[in-house]
């Protein structure tokens, strides 16, 4: 399933990085600790977090993640959005909290 399909199914807003909407999502990783994501996320995964600063995109890019989903209606800081556009890694926003969103996402992505 690609980023665009997930966004449509879960009613997520695309906030930046729209050129990466066709990125294929392999699975998901949820964490707000950056070193946890650095050490344990796998390429092609979508990252669910409440962190909204630019370093999120540095990690998403270094780890070849498919997209980032911000929970609870959070918005990216402007330099995070700018880097998302530059890298072609979409930042999406959900109005739902992490638990609810991840539950739905898991149902869509589980193998």
């Amino acid at each position: 399933m690609n980023v665009k399909e997930i966004a449509e199914k879960l009613n997520l807003k695309v906030l930046s990085g729209a050129s990466g909407l066709s990125n294929e999502i392999s699975f998901g990783y949820a964490s707000d600790l950056l070193s946890d994501v650095m050490g344990n996320a796998k390429s092609g995964e979508v990252w669910i977090t409440l962190q909204t600063h630019k370093n999120v995109m540095a990690i998403a890019s270094l780890k070849d993640l498919a997209a980032v989903i911000l929970v609870s209606g959070l918005q990216p800081e402007s330099d995070m959005a700018a880097q998302s556009d530059e890298e072609g890694i979409p930042v999406l926003s959900s109005s739902e909290d992490a638990f609810t969103l991840i539950g739905k996402l898991y149902e869509l992505l589980k193998k």
Binding site: D32, L33, L34, S35, D36, M38, G39, T49, Q51, H53, N55
Partner: peptide
């Protein structure tokens, strides 16, 4: 607060 400083950096390097 930025999500760094969880004491995982050096272990990540070692791994």
């Amino acid at each position: 607060e930025m999500g760094f400083g969880a004491g995982m950096g050096l272990p990540n390097i070692k791994n």
